[in-house]
Design a protein around this nucleic acid. Sequence first.
DNA 1: GTCTATAGATGGATAGAC
DNA 2: GTCTATCCATCTATAGAC
Lengths: 174, 174
Amino acid sequence: MPRPSAREIVLDAYVDILIEHGPGSVTLDAVAAKAKVSKGGLLYHFGSKEALLTGLLDRVWRLSFADVEHARTAPGGPVRYFLTSSVTDASMDKPAHRASMAALRQVGADERVAQTIRNCGQLWRNLLAEHIEDPLTAEMVGALGDGLYLRATMGEETETLANQIDEVLRRLGA
Amino acid sequence: MPRPSAREIVLDAYVDILIEHGPGSVTLDAVAAKAKVSKGGLLYHFGSKEALLTGLLDRVWRLSFADVEHARTAPGGPVRYFLTSSVTDASMDKPAHRASMAALRQVGADERVAQTIRNCGQLWRNLLAEHIEDPLTAEMVGALGDGLYLRATMGEETETLANQIDEVLRRLGA
DNA sequence: GTCTATAGATGGATAGAC
DNA sequence: GTCTATCCATCTATAGAC
């Protein structure tokens, strides 16, 4: 485990603040303080506030891509991995989910945000389509997972469904 | 149709800016300009930025409650109404959806935001539970609708599922 | 590569005229 | 009920020392 670069530490702080306080509270001062660098130090790595967002979107895409690849070889299969991670990891500190949660809070701030999130969604949908024969079923699994993800990011109880993923998949025929 | 009060016009402007530019761009100046009042005029109706958020959350709850009541007597039944409106109205300018989309962008800014959204979600889940016998099926329909809603708010294509709502419901047995 | 200092702009909120 | 004017805190970004 190599020590994370200063760039990554700053990005972590940016993500933390977005998730905990929202975009209205994101200031260079706040990010620098959380990352324990000075504002000048921060601006050496990210030349502007917009550069921070760019860095976040890069991370979101990179981690989502890796997560989808990881799903391909997951023990219970990709489909099961998709649903369980939608519901389980969103509240935990899996980096891929933290990054996309942070990005979700920036929708509207820049066109690239929604674009990136859509691209990541497409990755997952492609994966599901590869492993579920019927197209409509694949779409339904995708939408259901997205719903679980949304709920988890809202701090909602998802146990009712989380404990019955196998039965859910059986009923969907996936 | 009574002319909307100044309060409502200001709230509309606040919602517009949240949806179009995100919370990072919400300033009293911007809201006042969009509502075509002065900053002083705005602050007469909402004494602070926080009061604007409070006003939004009130509206979200009020409109969601009314929408759920409206769903009870919808032509195709409440369940069908839930799914079709999740997918259709989110991109349109139905006030209930615009308000909750705006609130969604403020998650993290204040605890009450996620709380309000959870409460509204509970309203819909109760409705579904009343009209779908099997509890797990009801939960699945709810999650699927939430997924469609999330996608619609991201400007995502939802037509594949939107055109097959009846088949979706048939497969879910709802 | 990280810091301090500071410029210059913009933010939220108040006071008081009309 | 709506406006203008203003205060002061905070924000982004730059300049330049170390």
